[in-house]
C-alpha cells in the first residue's frame, strides 16, 4: 500500500495504490492523517491504483470522511474500480461520500 499526496489547485490529491486490509489499515489511517494534517484544503482520494480494500480499510475511509466533515473540509473519492465501487454502494458510502468517476471530475466538484 502506498499513499502519494500532491496539491492541485485548492485541493490535496491523495493517490492510494495497492491493497488495504486488516494487516495495513492502521498504516493507511496514519498515512491519511499525515497527508491531510497541516492543511485546510479539501481532499480528493484517488483510488485509480487501489486493487483491493476490505472493511478494515472502509473503516479508515469512514473515519477520514467524518473527521474532514467536522472541520468543514470537502472530501471526494474518485476512480473506483467496479468491484470496489460495488462494495462502496453495498456499504452505503455512496450516500454519504461524494464519489466521482475521474480525478478531473473530482477536482471540478472541489472548485464549485
Amino acid at each position: 500500500m502506498n499513499v502519494n499526496t500532491e496539491t492541485s489547485g485548492n485541493s490535496l490529491v491523495v493517490a492510494l495504490d495497492g491493497r488495504v486490509d486488516s494487516s495495513n489499515a492502521a498504516e493507511f489511517n496514519a498515512a491519511l492523517e499525515t497527508a491531510t494534517a497541516d492543511s485546510d484544503l479539501g481532499v480528493v482520494l484517488d483510488c485509480e491504483n487501489l486493487q483491493y480494500i476490505s472493511s478494515a480499510g472502509l473503516r479508515v475511509i469512514l473515519t477520514t470522511a467524518k473527521s474532514l466533515q467536522s472541520s468543514q473540509r470537502k472530501f471526494v473519492i474518485c476512480t473506483l474500480s467496479n468491484p470496489i465501487q460495488d462494495i462502496f454502494v453495498i456499504s452505503g458510502f455512496d450516500q454519504i461520500i461524494n464519489i466521482q468517476g475521474s480525478r478531473a471530475e473530482a477536482l471540478a466538484t472541489m472548485e464549485a
Binding site: 473503516r59 469512514l62 470522511a65 467524518k66 466533515q69 456499504s91 452505503g92 450516500q95 461520500i97
Partner: peptide
Amino acid sequence: DVTSALEDRPIGGLGLHL
C-alpha cells in the same frame, strides 16, 4: 447501519453485511 447521515454513521459492522 448503511443509511444514517455521515455524522451518525457507526464505524464498523460492515463485514457481515458485505
